[in-house]
Amino acid sequence: MKLLAILLYPLGLLLRGKRAGSTRSIRNAPELAAAESGTLHLTSSAFTHGSTIPLRHATMDLGPNISPALAWDEPPARTKRMLLVMEDIDTPTAKPGRHMAAYFAPEPPRIDEGELTADNARFTYLPDHRNRTGYQGPRPLPGHGTHHYQFHLYALDCEPNTTAATELESLLPLLMGHVLASGHLEGTLRG
């Protein structure tokens, strides 16, 4: 993997100015606008908002791909499901790279370190941008600079219909008007 990083470094330098950007973030999807003005304070014991994500939470040649611990406020009483999305807004692509999308029961209001595995029955995963499920940690393109990884959490007053939606894009229309509160946490990693 180290050889791959060395080979990709010139490509990362060449693409430094190309980034998906925050305007195309899932955070701006009109379907996920909160029907109420609820806010969830989303935190991690591994990193603070805007700081570097430790390499133990990175993937490929950088780290062992262990999901970070996450915690949030008690969601509104009518919450039936939580939706967690992790994305990289700095990928050199047309839209941010989605590293994970999962929904789950609202209790307990936390996810323990390493809990976001593909085989954990607590979570129902939607495939990421490479058709994988489970947590896929940060791995910015070598030489591309700092990437911003965003964790978005939504409290939903409905149970998403997985037979009607098997990927996040097809699930979004079903969530319109069902978001009670949301939270946001951002970490960075330099490529």
Rank of each mutant, 00 (worst) to 15 (best):
M1H: 06
K2S: 15
L3V: 15
L4T: 14
L4K: 09
A5S: 15
A5F: 02
I6L: 15
L7N: 07
L7E: 14
L8Q: 13
Y9D: 15
Y9G: 11
Y9R: 12
P10L: 11
P10D: 15
L11W: 02
G12D: 08
G12C: 07
L13S: 11
L13I: 14
G17S: 14
A20I: 10
A20D: 13
S25K: 03
I26S: 04
P30Y: 01
S37M: 12
L40W: 02
L42W: 00
S45Q: 06
F47V: 11
T48R: 02
G50E: 15
T52W: 00
R56T: 14
H57A: 12
A58T: 12
T59C: 10
D61R: 08
L70F: 09
L70Y: 04
W72H: 04
P76D: 11
A77F: 00
A77K: 06
T79Y: 04
K80H: 05
M82N: 01
V85P: 00
M86N: 07
M86C: 08
M86A: 11
M86K: 03
D88S: 02
D90Y: 00
D90H: 02
T91F: 00
T91D: 07
A94C: 04
K95T: 14
G97D: 15
G97H: 02
R98P: 05
H99N: 13
H99T: 10
M100C: 11
A102I: 06
F104N: 03
F104H: 04
P106D: 08
P106I: 12
I111D: 06
I111R: 02
L116I: 11
L116R: 01
A121H: 02
R122D: 07
R122Q: 08
R122E: 07
F123M: 05
L126Y: 05
H129N: 08
R130A: 14
R132Q: 14
Y135C: 10
G137M: 07
P138A: 15
P140F: 01
P140T: 09
L141Q: 06
P142L: 00
T146L: 09
H147I: 06
H147Q: 06
Y149P: 09
Q150L: 12
C158G: 04
E159C: 01
N161W: 01
T166I: 09
E167L: 10
S170W: 02
L171R: 09
L174S: 13
L175V: 10
G177N: 08
H178G: 08
H178M: 06
A181D: 05
G183E: 07
H184Q: 13
H184D: 14
L185P: 10
E186L: 11
G187Y: 00
G191H: 00
G191T: 03
